[in-house]
């Protein structure tokens, strides 16, 4: 008898995880070799002890485990402006992402509706969208800092800019491709434009719109780390940068794992919401 696919996949995952940990543990074990001359530039960066290899700067999986455990014990402590718990840093980042994302949704969904409904507006706005969409959101950062003069607001603006495009494009596409016969049903029932928008077009386009939102929140979570590295102050991106300066690789790896987990959770929430509005045809 064969075990279920899920069980076998889980076992395989565990196996892969164990292999990675094992290889890592071996690779990162301290070596007492005073190797050949170390690149002085590198030595300056990572500190003399690590560079000469007396103690590897690379933590072992056990170190990481201990660090994660330490962070999880007390994620929300505040000891001065530069020393805050990892939970607080994540909360800052999450707050910025959600705020930027919701502002983008408020702008993108109505505008996308307009573009999807009116070929004229579509044609008129298309050049702007096509030019602005491929711009890296971080390229906006200097402009934002210069005009807004506030680093926190600037990073929210950058989130706004990067999450607006997928939502805008998907909303426009979803609205434009609502089946003609559904619109004809509304027309023959003499349904007014507003009621048609909310009762026919919105539910018809909702799965496409939600897919756009899912893409957006993924991009926003990618971008926030980079944005916070640039502007500093608070947030998980700043935490990573700060720990790089402290050369605490264990903290960085912890942050990487947590960023991954939070990103996964965000994606799952959006996936659930998408499923809620999806209809079988």
């Amino acid at each position: 008898m064969k075990a279920s696919l899920g069980l076998r996949a889980g076992l395989l995952s565990l196996l892969i995880f164990a292999a990675i940990v094992l290889v890592w543990q071996i690779a990162a074990r301290p070596t007492a070799v005073s190797g050949p001359a170390v690149d002085p530039e590198y030595a300056k960066l990572v500190g003399a002890a690590a560079a000469t290899g007396q103690k590897s700067a690379m933590p072992t999986p056990a170190d990481i485990g201990a660090t994660i455990w330490k962070h999880l014990q007390d994620p929300f402590y505040v000891r001065g402006s530069n020393d805050k718990g990892i939970g607080i840093q994540l909360a800052y980042s999450l707050g910025r992402v959600l705020l930027g994302f919701f502002l983008a949704a408020i702008a993108a969904v109505p505008l996308g509706f307009l573009i999807g409904m009116s070929p004229l507006v579509h044609r008129a706005l298309d050049p702007f969208i096509q030019v602005l969409k491929p711009v890296s959101p971080l390229a906006w950062m200097p402009l934002a800092l210069y005009t807004i003069k506030d680093s926190a607001v600037s990073s929210i603006f950058v989130i706004f800019i990067c999450s607006v495009w997928p939502m805008l494009i998907n909303t426009a596409f979803g609205v434009a491709s609502v089946r003609k016969e559904w619109l004809n049903v509304a027309r023959t029932l003499e349904v007014g434009p507003l009621r048609t928008a909310f009762r026919v077009i919105l539910p018809a386009a909702a799965p496409t719109i939600m897919t756009g939102m899912r893409i957006s929140i993924g991009i926003a979570w990618l971008v926030i780390v980079a944005a916070e590295m640039l502007v500093g102050g608070t947030g998980i991106g700043y935490f990573v940068w700060n720990e790089w300066n402290n050369l605490s690789i264990a903290n960085i790896v912890t942050a990487i794992l947590l960023i991954g987990v939070v990103g996964l959770l965000l994606d799952q929430v959006l996936a659930r919401l998408t499923k809620l509005v999806t209809y079988p045809e």
């Binding site: 049903v185 026919v200 539910p203």
Partner: peptide
């Protein structure tokens, strides 16, 4: 000069709203 509730249409492809 336009659709009306007085003239109900039964469409070829039934045209039900799937949601």
């Amino acid at each position: 000069d336009g659709p009306s509730l007085d003239r109900a249409v039964i469409f070829q492809g039934h045209a039900l709203l799937p949601w």
